[in-house]
Amino acid sequence: MAVRAARELRDGEVVFVGIGLPNLACNLARATHAPNLVLIYESGAVGAVPDRLPVSIGDPALVTGSLGVATMADVFQFYLQGGRIEVGFLGRAQIDRYGNINSTVIGSYEHPKVRLPGSGGACEIAIHAKRVIIVAPLSPRTFPENVDFITSPGQNGKYGSREQLHLPGAGPVRVVTDMGILAPARSDGELELVAIYPGVDEKEARSRAGWPLRCAPNLEVLPPPTSEELRLLRDVLDTDHLYIGKREA
């Protein structure tokens, strides 16, 4: 997933980086095909070049050698709301068929079964980044038909489409999973399987979503990670293997 997410980035892009796998993907992209990626962290580091894998989003290594440090008010108002962010990364707890993300509660809001961390910057990243890449392993639990709570808006849903809501960014355009890639259909914004990794069974992948996952007519088989990408991940960027298992690389 880290390799695939890295390949989604183009050289020179301005990326709003989260911690964990997205951070790894950005630094892999920087070490391979996108040396001029501009990494911006919500903590305020602009043009960060972390020389260790940051454990937290406000690691001191993000500041050392960076191009600048912004207040958080500037990060959210001028950088993100100001339309300067080209790619935003989002993860995790639940993603529905339209790419709406829940990172707030499992169960009802008033009486949650599990209280999750909440939005952080996710809601505004989903609204403002020119495009959003979601990274999450494909399973019915992570990809239910409907999320319990919409923290960050996707392509469509009970409040209407992005167009109806006049949301400035394109929202989640790629969902990078451990089986392949989902992308929203042009017609209604529903996520469908558009690409799989070599050796992954299409039927198996389609059974991993909580709704009848459609398959794009021209399903792409993605090239495998190169030995150089794997070497960078395992021996340089994530030497403690905090984020990569065999399956996730």
Binding site: S119, C123, I127, P153, Y159, L167
Partner: peptide
């Protein structure tokens, strides 16, 4: 003022 929260359940919560 901010451009935020459209399409999110946060204002309902």
């Amino acid at each position: 003022l901010l451009r935020d929260y459209d399409g999110s359940d946060l204002p309902a919560a």
